[in-house]
Structure formats: structure tokens, C-alpha cells
Amino acid sequence: MTYLPFFVFTGIFAIVGIVLPIVAPKGPNRGIVQCVLILTGACCWLFWLCCYMAQMNPLIGPKLHQNTILIMAREWGNMINLTETIEPHAVGH
């Protein structure tokens, strides 16, 4: 499952960089078309790969503001119930 994106994108750029150049139409510009496709595939694939790998095993986590955390929690599903924590505080003081 974790390798799925890798195979999908490698597959996509393999089509761009390997399959399309093979089926490129014959003509005076075939060489250029092939060169363009191969380089596009290679550059885009490597660029995607670097970005993916740089985040694959994160060494640091994002440092977020309190507000951002609360909004993120609300928007991205595990809502934090604040009432429980605020009330004891309020009572305590």
C-alpha cells in the first residue's frame, strides 16, 4: 500500500518517457520529439521522486500555532472537545 504512489507515478512517467518516444510519429522531427519526451519524463519523475522521498521518513514535524492546530483538528477530522479541559481550569481559578 505504501508503495502504491511510487508505482503509479513511475508508471505515468515511464509512459511519458519511454512508451511515447517509441510510438512517436515518424517524420523529420521524430528525434526531437523523442528527446523532448524522454527528458520531460526523466525530469518530472525525478522531481516528484525527490519530493516524495524527502517526506517519506520525516525527521522533524511541523511546528504549528495553537489556533492552527485547533482548526486543523476540526477540519481534518478528530475534533477536540475543548469544553472538558476549559471547565476545570475555569473552576480552578
Partner: peptide
Amino acid sequence: IMDSKALQLD
């Protein structure tokens, strides 16, 4: 969350 202004996710 309420105790600190900013938090780093682990």
C-alpha cells in the same frame, strides 16, 4: 494544546 502557544508535531 491549550497550555502552549505553539506545538511541534511529533
